[in-house]
Structures are given as C-alpha cells and as structure tokens.
Amino acid sequence: MNLDYFQLIDRIVDLNLDEKKITVEAQVPAVHTIFEGHFPGFPIMPGVLLTEAMAQSSGWLILGVLKFERMPFLAIVKEAKMRGFVSPGQLLTIEAKLEHEGSGFAVTKVKGRVGKELKCSAELTFGLTPFPDPALRVHMDAKANEIGFPLQAITHD
C-alpha cells in the first residue's frame, strides 16, 4: 500500500475474466502516520480505507472485463461490514467478483482477508464512463503495469 498516493493495492495475484473474479494483495505498512491517530496504543487500518481497497480491487476487475474501454467510479457502498481488525504490517488479500455489468453500472461483491480470517466485505456499485481525460488513461495504464495487471486482459479479441 502506498497510502500517501491512495494506492491501496500492491499487486494482482489472479485475474480470471471468464469467471469475472480478481484476487489482489495489499501489504499494510508497518509504520505510517495514519496509525498515530487511529488509534494511539492500538493501531488499526481505518474501515474507510479497507472499503477503498475493496473498491480499487473491484475497479481493476471491471477495467479488465471492459478491456479498459470505460472507467469505473465508485457510486454506492452497500452492506459494508468490518468484521475484524487489520493491523499494521499485515497482508490483506482481497477477492472481488463482478455480479452485474450493464446500463452504465457495474456491481461487485468483495471480501478482504488476513490469512483465512475474513476482515471486511461489501457490495459495491460503480458508474461506468468513457475515460474523462487522456491523462487518466495514461496513468491507469502505468499503474496496471506497476501492479502486474495481465496484459492479455486489455488486448481486444
């Protein structure tokens, strides 16, 4: 995780476009200023950042399914549950599945785990729009390369 740049996932472990599923990993930093206030003596990853990590994971899945033709923007968070604490230094594994895509929206169901222990889950809805600026597309292509996005996912059949 690079919290200072709001990059909350580190690498794509698996992207299965046929099953519309993605698995990513996020190494929670052992030390970061965010933990100084959340909470002194008991540092934990804020739930809002766990939700954002789930949203970013879902976003990469949607980008793959849509072959980078449209950009997903988080629109609705439903059924978000923080089921346990995620501590500094832990490895968070996030799995997302695309449940629906159409009419300008996409819906995913997402779970975050540390080891086998479920820590968070949500149903997320995204609005889909053409890339609003060419610079954003260039940025997303660079980030895709950085986190190991499989190139075959963005090539057209």
Rank of each mutant, 00 (worst) to 15 (best):
I154G: 01
L15Q: 01
A75C: 04
K111S: 04
E25T: 07
V48P: 00
E99S: 15
L15T: 09
H100W: 15
G64I: 05
G84I: 09
L151C: 08
I94P: 00
Q152H: 14
V110A: 12
P43Y: 07
L50W: 03
S57C: 08
E95F: 12
L74N: 03
A142I: 04
T33V: 04
M1P: 02
Q90T: 13
Q7W: 11
E101V: 15
L92F: 10
S87H: 11
H100Q: 13
D133K: 08
P134R: 04
K20W: 06
F68T: 00
K109G: 08
E19I: 08
K143R: 14
P88T: 12
L151Q: 13
G89D: 12
S87P: 08
E19D: 13
K20E: 02
G89F: 01
E99R: 13
E25F: 04
K143Q: 11
Q7T: 13
A144F: 05
F131D: 02
S121Q: 14
E146C: 06
P29Y: 08
P40L: 10
T51S: 13
V114R: 00
F39P: 00
A96Q: 13
F6L: 11
V48F: 07
R113W: 11
P72K: 03
F35W: 06
I12W: 02
M45E: 05
I147Y: 06
T125G: 12
L63M: 15
P29W: 05
